[in-house]
Design a protein around this nucleic acid. Sequence first.
DNA 1: TTGTATGCGTTATCAT
DNA 2: ATGATAACGCATACAA
Lengths: 334, 334
Amino acid sequence: MDRAPTIRDVASLAKVHAATASRALNPRTRDKVSPRTVQRVVEAARTLGYAPNSAARSLRTRTSSVAGVIIPDLRNPMFPPIVRGIEDGLAEAGYMALLGNTDDDADRERELVATMRGRQTDGFILATSHRGGIPLDGTVPVVLVNRRTDVGDTPSVTADGPAGVYALVRLLHELGHRRIGHLAGPRDVSTGWDRYRAFQDAMASYDLTGPVEFCDFFTEESGRLATARLLDATPDLTAIVASNDLIALGCYDVMNQRGLRCPEDISVTGFNEMPFVDKQRPSLTTVRIPLYDLGLESARLLLDRIANPSGPAKSVVLPTQVIQRESVARPSRR
Amino acid sequence: MDRAPTIRDVASLAKVHAATASRALNPRTRDKVSPRTVQRVVEAARTLGYAPNSAARSLRTRTSSVAGVIIPDLRNPMFPPIVRGIEDGLAEAGYMALLGNTDDDADRERELVATMRGRQTDGFILATSHRGGIPLDGTVPVVLVNRRTDVGDTPSVTADGPAGVYALVRLLHELGHRRIGHLAGPRDVSTGWDRYRAFQDAMASYDLTGPVEFCDFFTEESGRLATARLLDATPDLTAIVASNDLIALGCYDVMNQRGLRCPEDISVTGFNEMPFVDKQRPSLTTVRIPLYDLGLESARLLLDRIANPSGPAKSVVLPTQVIQRESVARPSRR
DNA sequence: TTGTATGCGTTATCAT
DNA sequence: ATGATAACGCATACAA
């Protein structure tokens, strides 16, 4: 278990000075070295199996080729595809991801950011969900994925949720539904809030208004509670637009408990196609969000920000797609 | 955008030398400094918002408090809970995880390991699945999670798959099934192979033998292909034990296509409870594997190995639990 | 084009 | 108990 070769070992094998070896090995400075020397150094590096010590490099250059990725909880099925996209995007530039889960705890988030900054993270991708400010002071590049802040000075990559909501409401309207309710997401989460507003707008465009109940969280349990309130307040609904799939599944549960059939009695739609919702009973109509691409684009945007920190704070919006399944049908007389 | 405070800033604020500040801030050397000095230094660090520069620390100590975690694909629902457990386990010791996906490509795996080693990774947790050797030379601590190698000199954390298979076969036998088939996982994956052997053993213990078809991958598509072969070869089966849930879902598909009902015609069991299989049609009987705990224990085991590299190569086996649902029933006359 | 010198921030060793 | 000093490996400004 002898020590790993350093650049001095490479240099002495190539019979040059360490500085020259460094220049020869770095693509950016390679043109300042004669081709023959480059050749010798590269050869020496290969035979020794040299790999640069990234700690030393980080210390010297103040960069690490590592990005911090902070999400609420990897077990939420939204995030694995996003994170995978992020990693693939970062890998395109030789970057790696340092992953942290906050469990939606703002203190934990601040703590993670601090720890990661101590680890020389070159930038952050935040997928945490609150609409409030971000725990960063603008001295380090940040990209938001699947969320925006209200003050729009942070680059973000989001899906066009409102367009998806419009499409769902249009679908239900075309099927003949007029009494449509909404199970909204938390008010302080940008995606939930955007969908709520889009729902109101879409309904208004058909000269309708619909009852709304807000969920405290994007969970089945919150969905159950809100569904109960919604059905108690407005028993004659024929369709329910849920702010995401988990809430829709909670809605399924309450409907089952109450002996209401889907879609015969009430049509239900979700949002954010989750794995296996096509195999639910009934299979769930939902909106597919290009999660992997959201991650991929956010990584590219971050790399762009790192390379060019003072550029404009671009935002990227990706299209969504309605996936119609068994959970919606024409309303029946009730 | 002024520079982050260094330990010298902390030291000068606390009116001590940098070396003393270092000792005061490091829990391991804190007892070599007078309590009053520790107090002053800690206070100074807090007021400055000091966070140690981990690149400098790594360079000096040759450790990074970072572990490499290598998995096939985060989008496989097995892995998010495992990775989350790993991260929580690592966090207990101030470690973070550097995550890499191999897509089951051995070259990619080697490449990732090399890159991560260059980043001063203190150890590795491998969740990749092949039974062959690992791409590491024994100079760096490694723990396998949810897999074993055939040469048992690498510490591992696995679930007791064979016990789960036994329990499933016993359940089916008690319900009255005698013609039970197995959709086995890939031969070169330890979990699949172990379950295959456990199936044979369990069947033999009831003086039965059952037809087996191997899947090339743990996917729905592989499950569909193998199910078709199994049913073609042995049409009179009353129960099918699938090597995991995805394969079982593929089995559902083929049964649907062929007009076979589950469980009326054939009972089906999965393995590795995946999210939402309780909401499938019919809800799937499966074996729950403590994925989060698998990750947590593997992190602890790795930390143990890092602290004590020459100790024995412990392996941890965690219990599994059968979750009985609608997909199994007494066999009907056919 | 190449060599020399220096410092990034931390901690281990030695001296006080 | 604390201070002084050096070294980890690399990249760069400057000199040659």
